[in-house]
Computed example of a mutant assay.
Amino acid sequence: MKTKTVALIAVMIAIIIALGFIPGIPLGFIPVPIILQNMGIMLAGALLGSKRGFLCVFIFLVMVALGLPVLSGGSGNIAAFMGPTAGYLFSYPFAAYLVGLVTEKFDKANAFLEFFLIWLAGAVFIDVMGAVGLTIQSHMPLHQALLANLVFIPGDTIKVLIVTLIHRRFKNSSFLQA
C-alpha cells in the first residue's frame, strides 16, 4: 500500500474521530442519539473511493472494538457492537463502500443525482440497517424501528448535502488520487 494511501486513510479516520467529539443529541424515544460521525463515514467513501473507504471505516471500527474512545461521546469498546447502535456500526464500512461505489460509477453525474445516490447509499442504508439492528437488540418491531429512524432523515439529508459539496469540490483533485 502506498504511503499516500495510508496517509489519506489516517487523515479520514482522524476526521471521523473528530466528528465524534461533538456529543450526540439524545432523543428519548429511541436509544440512539443524533450524531455527526455518520457524515464522516459517507465522506470516507466519497473521497477515498469504495475500497479505501471501506478499509478506512473498518480500521476505525477495529479501534472501537479495541476500546479506544473514538465513538461519539468518547465511548468505545466491544460492547458497542452488541448495544442499540450495533446495526449502525456494522453498516458503516458497507455504507462507505456503497457511497464510494456510486461516486466512482457516476463520476460524471450532475449534483442532484450525486446527492440522491449518496443519500440512498449512505444515509438511508445506515438508517435501515440501524433499524434492523435495533429490532434485533431491543426486540422493537421492525416497522416501529423504521418509523423511529425517520427522525434522522432531515439531519442526515443535510449531512449528505455537505458530503456532496465536499466531494464535488475535491473529486478531481490530484491530492486524493493514489
Results as ranks from 00 to 15, higher is better:
A80Y: 05
G53V: 05
N149Q: 06
G87L: 13
G87T: 02
E114R: 09
F115Q: 00
N110E: 08
P31C: 10
I35H: 13
G28N: 13
M63C: 02
A123D: 03
A96R: 09
A46P: 10
V62N: 07
S72W: 03
L48D: 00
M129S: 03
V132E: 12
V128N: 08
M82A: 11
W119D: 01
M82R: 04
F90S: 06
P84D: 14
I78E: 00
N110S: 10
M63R: 00
L55T: 12
I30C: 14
P33S: 08
S75C: 02
L113Y: 07
A131T: 04
I126C: 04
V70M: 00
F125W: 15
Y97L: 15
L101G: 02
V62H: 07
H143F: 02
A148W: 07
P31H: 13
G76D: 05
G76I: 12
K51S: 10
F125S: 08
S72M: 01
I34D: 09
A148F: 11
H143K: 00
L134S: 04
T135G: 13
A86P: 10
A79C: 05
K105I: 02
C56N: 13
T103H: 04
V64F: 01
V57C: 08
G67F: 12
F116V: 10
P93A: 01
I126M: 10
E114G: 07
I41R: 08
A46S: 12
A148L: 13
I30P: 14
A109M: 01
F94I: 07
F106S: 01
L55H: 05
L71Y: 09
L98G: 00
L55I: 10
G49K: 13
V64R: 02
L147R: 05
G100E: 03
P93M: 01
A131V: 07
Y97P: 14
P69C: 11
N77L: 01
T103I: 07
A65T: 03
L89A: 09
S138Q: 15
N110D: 13
M63T: 05
A46I: 11
Q137W: 14
V32P: 15
V57D: 13
A96G: 08
G73R: 12
G40Q: 05
G45I: 00
L47V: 11
M82L: 11
R52C: 06
A65D: 12
A111G: 08
V64G: 03
A44V: 02
G40D: 03
S50K: 14
V124C: 12
P141T: 04
L89K: 08
Q144F: 13
L120Y: 05
S75G: 06
F54Q: 05
G28Y: 15
V62R: 02
K105Y: 01
F60V: 09
N110Y: 04
G67S: 14
F112R: 04
F112T: 11
P141E: 06
P69M: 11
M63S: 04
G122F: 00
I35W: 10
F60D: 10
E104I: 01
C56A: 14
L117Y: 03
V32K: 15
E104D: 04
F94Q: 06
G76M: 07
W119I: 01
I126W: 12
G87N: 03
F90T: 05
A65K: 09
E114C: 09
F54R: 10
I78Q: 00
M39W: 12
T103G: 09
L61P: 12
Y88F: 15
P69T: 15
